[in-house]
Simulated assay, not measured.
Amino acid sequence: MIENLDPKQAWAVLRENPAAVLIDVRTAIEHGFVGHPPHAIHVAWKEFPGMQLNTGFVEQVRQHAPDKAAPVLLLCRSGVRSVDAAKALEADGYQHLINILEGFEGPLDENKHRGTVGGWRYHGLPWQQS
């Protein structure tokens, strides 16, 4: 089963459960330049050029999250890619998957800008840039 939590709920899980692992499934550019939560492990679901599927995604996550019973939280830009990534991990036997709703930047607002109506940064949670 894949659980959906908002960014504040996800942050609480990370603070309260030392076994929890946060996987940032965005591209390397998004992770580095847009920013990411502290200790987020970058494993792209899709990558440039062409936003091609990372065929090694599940194996790469296994290296960082070998315990398939521990919580694995998945973060993308707006909460869409992370759902697909969670489904792939669920098929591999991961038991406690958490999709972070709104993602890091949140949905587009009326001016087609992100970060003004939702997302990890919008909620004032810790983040950093490379």
Rank of each mutant, 00 (worst) to 15 (best):
M51L: 14
T116I: 01
I2E: 10
R26A: 11
W11L: 07
A88F: 08
N111Y: 12
S130C: 02
V117D: 02
Y122N: 08
L101G: 05
K68G: 01
K68Q: 15
H123P: 00
N99S: 07
V72L: 04
D92W: 02
S130W: 09
L5G: 08
T116C: 01
D92N: 13
A69Q: 15
I29S: 15
G119W: 00
V13S: 03
V25Y: 10
V80L: 10
T116L: 04
L97V: 05
P18Y: 00
K68M: 13
E90V: 03
Q128C: 02
F104V: 05
H96A: 11
A85T: 12
S78P: 08
L97A: 06
A44S: 12
M51I: 00
A70V: 08
Q9M: 02
E110C: 05
Q129I: 10
H123K: 09
V34F: 00
N17F: 00
A91F: 03
N17L: 00
R114M: 13
H39K: 14
Q129N: 06
H64Y: 11
K8E: 14
E90D: 13
M1R: 01
L74Y: 09
H96I: 00
L97P: 07
N4L: 11
A19R: 14
P37N: 08
A28D: 11
V21Y: 01
G106I: 06
E3F: 01
N111W: 10
M1H: 05
R114C: 07
P49G: 01
Q52K: 14
K46L: 13
H113T: 02
A69Y: 00
R26C: 08
A86W: 08
S130N: 13
G50D: 11
G115D: 01
P49S: 01
G32H: 03
E102V: 03
H39Q: 15
L75P: 11
G79M: 09
Q128N: 00
N54T: 04
G35S: 08
A44C: 06
D67N: 15
A10C: 05
A69T: 14
V25P: 09
E59T: 13
F33V: 06
K8S: 13
H36R: 14
L97E: 06
V72W: 06
P7S: 04
A86G: 14
A65L: 07
W120D: 08
M1S: 13
L53W: 00
H113S: 12
N4P: 00
V43L: 12
A69N: 13
A28E: 12
Q60K: 12
L74W: 04
F48V: 01
L5Q: 07
V43N: 09
A40Y: 07
R15V: 09
Y122W: 12
V117I: 15
M1E: 12
E3T: 14
D24S: 03
A44R: 01
G118I: 03
G115N: 03
F57S: 11
L101I: 12
G119V: 04
F57I: 07
P38I: 00
V34N: 06
T116K: 07
S78G: 15
P107F: 04
L108W: 14
W45K: 04
K112N: 15
Q129R: 14
P38E: 09
A28R: 13
H113G: 00
H42M: 13
L97D: 06
E105Y: 02
K8T: 15
L74C: 09
N17P: 03
T116A: 05
